[in-house]
């Protein structure tokens, strides 16, 4: 089986700060890969590079074997239709009601009429456990957990082949975090999608992944099946998953 997403030697620097220093990563179709790593290690930059929001300086990004690194315009839009993304803060459009947020990709991206798009939006909201009347609320009226659910409904609305999750449990209480984790697992299976997530929440990472990769110093320093992470034999991974202050990873306390 050819990989769904492949990153080969991806490098990105901002000014003099090297964020990605040759990332190699492969995501198999219908698998769920979670990238773990500390804050500021380039997890978001990795995802945004695949999405084309950030342009890498070097390296190649393949989606379904197609080189998408430098795609623009209509060709880029075509690739974007394969993607869905759940943003950390939800990133819902606050000028639009919830249903229109969920249906946005269908109406704007695919030119669907508003009426059928609304029906699909209500159906997707039901999938993430929200009643139809939530559709008429505005994003400012929602709680943190509901925001994530609506974000998830929007991410799956156009049945994407690949779904990205950016810190899906950040800012939620442990119970709501677990509910969102369950929803991620069930919706990804349901849509039959490939999932690529980034998180520093190990409980979430273990729950939603088949494979885990750890990003440190701009490189993937370890990857393997989720079950193998406790026996990685890698001191960096051990320090991270157990959340210890002592170890090979030195946090830059001063910025």
């Amino acid at each position: 089986m050819s990989p769904k997403i492949q990153l080969i030697g991806v490098k990105k620097r901002f000014g003099s700060k090297v964020v990605l220093d040759g990332v190699d990563l492969t995501v198999e179709p219908r698998s769920s890969l979670v990238i773990i790593g500390g804050s500021g290690t380039g997890k978001s930059v990795t995802i945004k590079s695949i999405l084309g929001i950030i342009r890498p300086d070097e390296g190649t990004i393949l989606v379904d074997g197609e080189d998408v690194t430098h795609l623009r315009g209509a060709a880029r839009d075509k690739v974007m239709k394969k993607f869905g993304m759940l943003f950390q803060g939800g990133a819902l459009f606050d000028s639009l009601p919830v249903w229109e947020n969920v249906a946005f990709g269908l109406i704007q991206g695919r030119g669907m009429a508003r009426k059928p798009a609304r029906d699909i939006a209500i159906e997707k909201l039901a999938k993430v456990g929200l009643a139809a009347d939530v559709g008429d609320l505005f994003p400012v009226e929602l709680s943190g957990g509901m925001l994530k659910r609506v974000g998830l409904a929007r991410a799956i609305a156009s049945d994407p082949e690949i779904i990205f999750f950016d810190e899906p449990t950040t800012g939620l209480d442990p119970i709501m975090a677990d509910i969102i984790n369950d929803l991620i697992v069930s919706t990804v299976k349901d849509v039959g999608a490939t999932a690529l997530s980034i998180t520093h929440d190990m409980i979430s990472a273990r729950k939603i992944s088949d494979k885990i990769a750890m990003l440190y110093g701009g490189k993937i320093i370890w990857q393997g099946p989720t079950a193998a992470i406790d026996n990685s034999g890698n001191p960096y991974v051990d320090q991270f998953i157990h959340g210890k202050a002592e170890g090979p990873i030195k946090m830059a306390v001063k910025a």
């Binding site: 999405l51 943003f87 990205f164």
Partner: peptide, 8 residues
């Protein structure tokens, strides 16, 4: 960024 991911 969300607009971009929604092919807009």
């Amino acid at each position: 960024d969300a607009l971009t991911t929604l092919a807009t």
